[in-house]
């Protein structure tokens, strides 16, 4: 089971974590990976200035746009399936 954890703290929320979560929801569904990838939220990850922050399993990533999120999803989830 892979886990994507997106920060929903104040700063990350402003930097689009809401849209990023919605993107991941859709992407997981479209790839038919509901049983393999879990999507979670978390409050502050203590990297507020870099946000929006997210973890793929235990690795920290920063996504400042949906494009970043798409790239992370491609590289970390799809290609490492």
């Amino acid at each position: 089971m892979r886990v994507i954890t997106v920060c929903v703290g104040s700063a990350c929320h402003l930097k689009g974590s809401h849209e990023i979560i919605n993107y991941f929801k859709e992407a997981i569904q479209q790839a038919g990976l509901e049983k393999e990838v879990e999507l979670k939220g978390t409050f502050c990850m203590d990297h507020c200035t870099d946000g929006a922050n997210l973890l793929v399993d235990d690795v920290l990533f920063h996504a400042s746009s949906i494009d970043d999120a798409r790239r992370i999803f491609e590289e970390e989830i799809i290609q490492k399936k």
């Binding site: 929903v8 999507l39 979670k40 939220g41 409050f43 203590d46």
Partner: peptide, 28 residues
């Protein structure tokens, strides 16, 4: 507040579980 919740979680030795279903466009 995320940091504040974190301080409490640490003190209580429990995790904060985020409930994504309560998210709206405006409110985390």
């Amino acid at each position: 507040g995320g940091t504040t919740a974190g301080i409490l979680a640490k003190f209580l030795d429990k995790d904060v579980i985020v409930d994504l279903s309560t998210m709206t466009n405006k409110i985390p």
